[in-house]
Amino acid sequence: MQTNLSFDTAHVLLLSAVTGIFLLAGFVKGVVGLGLPTVAVGLLGLFMPPQQAAALLIVPSLATNLWQLLAGGRFVWLLRRLWLMLAGIVAGTLLGANFMAADSVGHATIALGMALIAYALLGLAAARFSVSAGKEKYLSPVIGLTTGLITAATAVFVIPAVPYLQALNLEKDELIQALGLSFTVSTIAMAAGLAQGGALHMEGAAISLIALLPALGGMFVGQWLRAKISAVLFRRCFFVGLLLLGLHLSSHLWR
């Protein structure tokens, strides 16, 4: 009886934490247009391995990114323009799929912390880059491959894909849709990599499905609140929070 009680309590605590984290992650995505996987995996990484966190991310990330992808009318044009980067993302993610599965000493958690630090510093610096059309065909597969390898190691697929897409001088709606396309492909590739490594299980899939509702609810509230608060101030707070989280997760480097 004691064992069953402990088992039930552990599951209730896990579901409560997952619900709260995905509610917050969806809220952030609703306000700033990105950040759901970054926030979710970063916070989940405080009490579970990144590989397990990545498995919980699949359904909410895929659903919210498909929503973002299908909201625009430039899908075919973006697919033709970005296919080299997208192919690189798939290749890099599958090539690095065994990294988290083989991680037994916390390297993936440290890598996740470093990725969050890099992303936060770029965001706080408001760095702006520009990529010419002539360089795009050479850079796209490299950016995609690098993003895929980082995705496989950390379950965070924003570095360097997001700064690169921002450097292509896309229109606002095109950029939002391009981010949705990149994140959707990254999520599918990550799911394939996790399945390849045997990290996808029915229990994880069920919790991931449960996490979809708070993620969508948070995203809806965030979109509603976007017009009522300073987006600049919110973004700064968001990146400061990611920086602190990244420093905490990578703290093993200094121990």
Rank of each mutant, 00 (worst) to 15 (best):
A125K: 00
L121I: 09
T154P: 09
L122I: 14
K135P: 00
A120N: 04
A118E: 07
A127Y: 13
G144V: 08
A152W: 04
Y138M: 08
A152S: 11
L116P: 12
A126Y: 00
T151E: 07
A153K: 05
T147E: 07
S130W: 06
L122V: 10
I143P: 03
R128G: 02
G113T: 11
T147G: 12
A120V: 05
S130R: 15
F129I: 00
A153G: 11
A133K: 14
L145D: 05
P141Y: 01
L149D: 11
A126C: 08
R128C: 04
L149A: 09
S132Y: 01
L139P: 04
L139Y: 07
T154A: 02
A120H: 10
T146K: 03
L149T: 10
Y119V: 15
K135Q: 09
S132E: 10
A115T: 14
A127D: 02
L145Y: 09
A127K: 08
I117Q: 04
Y138V: 03
I117E: 03
V142A: 14
G113K: 08
A120C: 10
A127V: 14
A115R: 05
L149P: 11
A120G: 05
A133H: 15
T147H: 08
Y138P: 01
L124M: 12
V131N: 09
E136I: 00
L121H: 00
I143C: 09
T151L: 13
L145N: 03
T151F: 12
A126I: 00
A120L: 09
G144I: 10
L116Y: 10
L116I: 12
T147K: 10
T147V: 10
I117T: 01
S140H: 03
A115N: 10
A120Y: 09
A118M: 15
Y138H: 11
L116D: 13
A133I: 12
G134S: 13
L149I: 14
P141D: 01
L124P: 06
L116N: 12
S140N: 07
M114N: 03
A125R: 09
V142W: 04
V142R: 02
A126Q: 15
G113M: 11
G113H: 12
A133S: 15
S140I: 02
T151K: 03
G123H: 07
M114P: 01
I150Q: 02
G113R: 11
F129M: 11
I150P: 01
A127T: 13
T154M: 07
Y119T: 15
V131H: 08
A153M: 06
G134M: 03
T147I: 11
A115S: 14
F129Q: 05
L139V: 04
L149S: 06
T147Q: 07
L145C: 06
M114F: 05
K137N: 01
A118N: 07
V142K: 01
S130E: 14
P141S: 00
T146S: 15
I143N: 04
I117C: 14
I143W: 06
L124Y: 09
G148R: 07
S130M: 10
A120K: 10
G123Y: 05
I143V: 15
Y138T: 03
G148S: 07
A152V: 04
I117D: 02
K137C: 08
V142I: 15
S130N: 12
P141T: 00
A118G: 13
L122A: 04
T151S: 15
G148T: 03
T146Y: 11
V131W: 05
Y119F: 15
G148N: 09
T151I: 08
L116S: 13
I150L: 12
A152L: 09
K135G: 01
K135S: 11
A126H: 14
